[in-house]
Design a protein around this nucleic acid. Structure first.
Lengths: 154, 154
DNA sequence: GTTGAAAAGGGTCCCGT
DNA sequence: ACGGGACCCTTTTCAAC
């Protein structure tokens, strides 16, 4: 169930497919020196184990109309409201990630907005009413980089 | 070049493929009531426009050996060192995201580590030597949710 | 756990509209 | 920009090792 059960072939496959979800498995097979059926089964196994949680296309947020991105640290009024706040946050389309964190904030969320004014609207009209004592906004004005974790089961 | 050039069919296609990069385009075609060739051309157009930046498989970080996740806010000693620090950060395998932010931190990074001890090692041995005045660690002890931005060009 | 082969289906390209 | 069709490659399954 854990990564201890994964061998080098699994690692090689994951490395080849993780940044290109539409790579033909036969191409992976050729790279790995095994049959296409083997890759098919291995990938199926990785899905069944939950190692592979799914696949997605990566879209450019700006090009679909979201020019502003921010992390917002949330301070809850009452700690007992954690779960209900999270539930409400999940309903807000612009809130794309949410973490329970240690440190100064109770929750940390990632928010996209059409522009700065739209972000302000989201914070004031959507977030504040959920029962927050305070919020702290970290605007991301540049995505310096983004990459994948290393994969190595050797 | 922007989302203003995208129509409802583009939106429908993106909605169908964004959470499943391996969906057959012919299935998308049937859902949209157009030919496979049309989907093929549209997707190609979206890639050329940069709306689609790529595709990926989503892996479970825990299941490939990374049990700890944290955001770390960085305070630089000197503002002039931004770019060189970012360059060095990018070389650290465990640092998967990096943002220039407004607010209290100069930079905000997302870090995965094998465990808490490993995270401490990364912060002390890898991050601190880069010329940081201070760091502030927000451990993520639960990933409450993670979803996609809404797509709507109607 | 892996293989090769067969059947079914999808991806890609070209031409016509 | 889209549709139809042809061709080739890929996916998926299964018996056999």
């Amino acid at each position: 169930m854990a990564y201890h059960d994964l061998d080098e072939l699994d690692g090689k496959i994951l490395k080849l497919i993780v940044n290109n979800a539409r790579i033909p498995f036969l191409e992976v097979a050729r790279e790995c020196g095994v049959s296409g059926a083997a890759i098919h089964q291995r990938v199926q196994k990785l899905v069944n184990l939950g190692v592979i949680k799914g696949s997605e296309f990566i879209l450019d947020a700006e090009k679909i109309g979201y020019e502003t991105c921010a992390y917002v640290g949330l301070f809850l009024v009452s700690p007992s409201s954690f779960d209900s706040v999270v539930k409400e946050l999940e309903k807000i389309p612009e809130v794309v990630e949410c973490y329970y964190t240690t440190g100064q904030y109770d929750l940390l969320i990632k928010v996209f907005a059409k522009n700065n004014k739209d972000l302000l609207r989201i914070i004031h009209s959507q977030l504040q009413p959920l029962g927050l004592a305070r919020t702290e906004t970290l605007m991301c004005f540049k995505d310096a980089f983004r990459k994948k974790l290393p994969i190595d089961f050797s």
